[in-house]
Design a protein around this nucleic acid. Structure first.
Lengths: 187, 187, 187, 187
DNA sequence: GATGAATGAGCTTTCATTCAT
DNA sequence: CATGAATGAAAGCTCATTCAT
C-alpha cells in the first residue's frame, strides 16, 4: 500500500476511534508509520486529508450501492436491492459509513464535496425508483427528495443502533428493516 | 442569564456554526462575553462544557417529547403525538437537535451521558407505545429497540434534509412523514 | 489568632511543604481559611507576605539565640550556649529555620532584609565572642566573619541532615557537634 | 552545543539569577535561543528540566570531588584533598554548587534524585576516610554521617559567605578552612 | 474588615508546518 | 521522495488582583 493510502487509512481509523476533533497530525503519522514531513508530499493540510478520505468513502459507497442492481427486476426487487446494499455497506464498512454520515451535514466538508456525484450515479438511481413507484401509484405522492431522505434515514438509524449493540442485525432483522422501509413509502 | 448559561449558549452556537473541532476557548469566551478565567469557575475543561451542553439539550428534548401526551388517547394519536413532538423539537431547536444527533454516537460523549435518562422518561413512553401496538397486533413483531430506532431515524433524517433545504417542512409534509413512520411499523 | 497571623502561618507551612515556587495565593487563603480579598487588607502582594514571614522568623531566631546567654560565663560556656541555642532553635522550629536558611541567600529576599539586625543584636554577640577568643589566643587568627560563617554552617548542615533523618540528634550527638564546632576554631 | 545543552545551561543560569520560582519557560527559551516547542522535544515539563540540570550538576560535582585523590596518600592529605576539591568546585562553579545546595533539601527534587549516587562514588570515598580516621584513633568516634555532614556543611557555609562577598577566599583562607574542618573531627 | 465571583495578563503546552539532511 | 528536529502561532489554563456586596 502506498504512503498516501497509509495516511488516509490511519486518518479514517483515528476519526472513528476518537472523533475528528481529537485527530492530530502527530497521531496520523505515528499510526501511518510515516515521517511528519511526508504528509505534505500528498496533502497541503488536514482539511485536504479529511476531504480526500471523505471523497474516497463516498466513491466506495457509490459503487457498492448499485452492485447487483438490474433495471429489469421488479420495482420491489430493485428497491430492496438498493436498501440492502446500503445496509450491507454499513455492516461491512462501519468506519466509512459513520464517517460519511457524520460529515455529510458538517461544516467541515466543503459544499461541493457534500453534493458530489457518487462514483456511480447512485442517487439518481434511487430517486428514479421512487419516482417510478409514485407514477405506478404504488408509492405515495411526496416530494421525491423527502422519500429518499426517509428511506435513507431508516438505514442510517438502524445501523447506528447496531453499532452500539442495541440489537443484532441478522437476516431476520435485515428483512424486517427492508420491509419497513418499503411500507413507509406505500400509499 | 448567568455566566454559566452564557458560556453554554455560546458553546452550542459555535458548535452549530463551525463544528466541535473548530470551537476554541477563545471563541467561547468572546462570544459569551466573559473573561477567559471565568470559564474555569464553572468547568474544569472543554470536555466538561460540551458534556454539560449535551446534558442540557437532552433534558430539554426529554421534556419536549412528552408534551401533550395523554395516555388515554388512541394508539394512533399517541404515536403521532410522540413523533410530532420530536419533529417539532427539531424544527424549533435545530441547534440542540443536531448537536444531540451528532454526539449521541460520538466518542466525545461519555458512555453514561449517552445512556442518560432524559428529563422525563420519554424513551420508556415511546417503547411502551411500540410494545402495546405489537400486543394489539397492529405493529409487526420486531425487537422493540429496532422499531424505536427506526421511527426515530426517520425523524432525524427528515430534519437533516430540511436543515440543508432539500425541501420545506410544512403541515402537509409533516403529516406525510408522520404517516410514513406509522406505516413503517404496521404488520 | 488574627487573620494576618493565619495568613503568615499558612504561608510558612506551604513553603515548607511544597517550596516557594509552588505556593499560590489560592493555596494560602484556602489553608488560612480567609477570603481571597482579605489578604490585600494586610499585604500588597506575595513578595510582601514572604518578606513579612522572613522578618518574623528572623526576629524569632534572634531572640532565641541569646536566651540564657550570660556575659559573665566563661568563653567556652558562652560559645556553647550560642551554638546550642541555634541548634535547639532548628530542632524546635524546623520550618522557620529552613525558611531562613534557604532564603538568606536567595534573590527573593530584599537586600536590606537579608542584612537586618536580628531582634536582639545576636550577630554582634557571636562575633564578639569570636574576637575575644582570638584575643585570648584560644581561637586561631582568622577573619571573624569567616569564623562566624564556619560555626554557623556546622549547625545548619547538621540540622539539615537531621531533618532528612540521616541520624538522630540526642544529647550525645548535640554535645559532639558543639565540641566539634569549638575545636574548629582552636589554634 | 546541542539544543538540550542550551536549554539546561539557560535554566541553570536563570535559577541562579532569579531563583526557581521566577524561572518561566518563556525566559528559558529566550535565553537558550530555541523555539518554545523545542523544549518539549527533550523534556515533558519544567520539573523534568530542573531534575535533569540537578542530575548533571551532581555528576559534575561527583567527578570533581575525587580528582587527584590517591588512596596511597596519608589520611591528612586525603582528607584535605577531598575538602579542597569540594571548596574548589564551589569557587569554580558557583551556579552548580548553589543549585545543588539549595535543592538537595527542597521538596522539588524527587527523593531518588536526592539520594543518587554521584558520578563517581565520592560519598563512599569521603565516608571511608572518616571511618579510617576513627579506627586509627585520630578522629573522634561519631556517627560517620554526622561527621560527613559536618565537614560538608563547613565548606557549603564558607562558600555562601564568599558568594555574598563577606570575605575573600584566597590561598590563606582556604588553608584555614581546610585546617578547621580537620580539627573539627579530631579527638 | 471580609468576601468570592469575575477578570485578563501571562504562563504552559500543543501541534500544524517548515526545511536541512 | 522520505525524514524528524525545530519552530512559533495559537491553544488551553493558572493565578494574582480587583471590586461590588
Amino acid at each position: 500500500m502506498s504512503k498516501k493510502q497509509d495516511i488516509m487509512a490511519a486518518t479514517l481509523d483515528l476519526i472513528h476511534e476518537e472523533g475528528l476533533q481529537a485527530v492530530t497530525f502527530s497521531k496520523i503519522f505515528k499510526r501511518a508509520n510515516v515521517g511528519s514531513g511526508t504528509i505534505y508530499n500528498y496533502f497541503a493540510n488536514k482539511e485536504e486529508i479529511v476531504n480526500a478520505v471523505y471523497k474516497e468513502a463516498r466513491m466506495h459507497l457509490g459503487e457498492y450501492l448499485v452492485q447487483g442492481f438490474t433495471p429489469e427486476a421488479s420495482l420491489y426487487e430493485r428497491f430492496k436491492r438498493l436498501q440492502l446494499n446500503r445496509l450491507q455497506f454499513g455492516i461491512d464498512f462501519p468506519k466509512e459509513f459513520l464517517f460519511i454520515d457524520s460529515f455529510s451535514f458538517s461544516p467541515y466538508i466543503s459544499h461541493e464535496l457534500r453534493n458530489m456525484d457518487d462514483g456511480d450515479n447512485s442517487r439518481e438511481v434511487v430517486l428514479s425508483v421512487i419516482v417510478e413507484g409514485q407514477k405506478q401509484g404504488i408509492f405515495r405522492e411526496m416530494e421525491s427528495h423527502l422519500s429518499h431522505q426517509l428511506i435513507h434515514g431508516i438505514i442510517s438509524s438502524i445501523l447506528k443502533g447496531y453499532y452500539v449493540q442495541k440489537y443484532p442485525l441478522d437476516e431476520i432483522q435485515i428483512q424486517q428493516v427492508l420491509e419497513s422501509s418499503w411500507k413507509a413509502l406505500l400509499v
